[in-house]
């Protein structure tokens, strides 16, 4: 992670202009070339430091999603997690420390699609799925303030 990388991550989590050559706009502000910016972003993406470059959309703008939780007996966790992760509609699946130990996000084009996936998972595993849809979003998303050390 060099100075250019840090400057891009610190300074450009928002406010990248919507213009035909956005990387040139970043380059100009940082006093480097457009190619250097593109090359550095490619490396950051390849090594996993960046998830992506682009727009962050408000949740449930296109499609519907929900947070779901299951209480799975420890000796069944591997199998149940595999069943859950195997759904394309599941894009996050975490094991967490709680009696409700499997937490995942279900996303589909509409709420019926979400409900169907939840019912399918309940049917396939025989375990109740707690459906915890977002009722209100309070996050003021300005990007994440990373502390370099």
């Amino acid at each position: 992670m060099d100075e250019l990388d840090k400057k891009m991550i610190d300074g450009f989590q928002r406010g990248v202009p919507l213009v035909e050559r956005p990387y040139a706009a970043i380059a100009e502000k940082l006093g480097v070339s457009e190619d250097e910016v593109i090359e550095a972003l490619k490396v950051l993406k390849e090594n996993g430091a960046l998830s992506r470059v682009g727009a962050v959309f408000k949740p449930n703008t296109v499609g519907h999603s929900t947070l779901a939780a299951m209480a799975v007996e420890p000796d069944r966790l591997e199998d149940v997690a595999a069943v859950v992760s195997n759904f394309d509609a599941v894009n996050h699946n975490y094991e967490r420390e709680h009696r409700l130990n499997l937490w995942f996000v279900v996303t589909a084009t509409d709420s019926q699609g979400v409900q169907q996936v939840i019912e399918d998972i309940e049917h396939m595993t025989g375990i109740k799925v707690l459906n915890l849809p977002m009722l209100e979003d309070y996050h003021l998303d300005l990007g994440f303030d990373l502390q370099w050390n």
Binding site: L50, V53, G54, A55, V56, F57, T61, F144
Partner: peptide, 18 residues
């Protein structure tokens, strides 16, 4: 972006990798 459908436009770091 003006209507809030896009919250921000920029680099999206992977917290875990960082």
């Amino acid at each position: 972006l003006k209507s809030g459908v896009i919250r921000r436009n920029g680099v999206v770091p992977n917290h875990y990798a960082l």
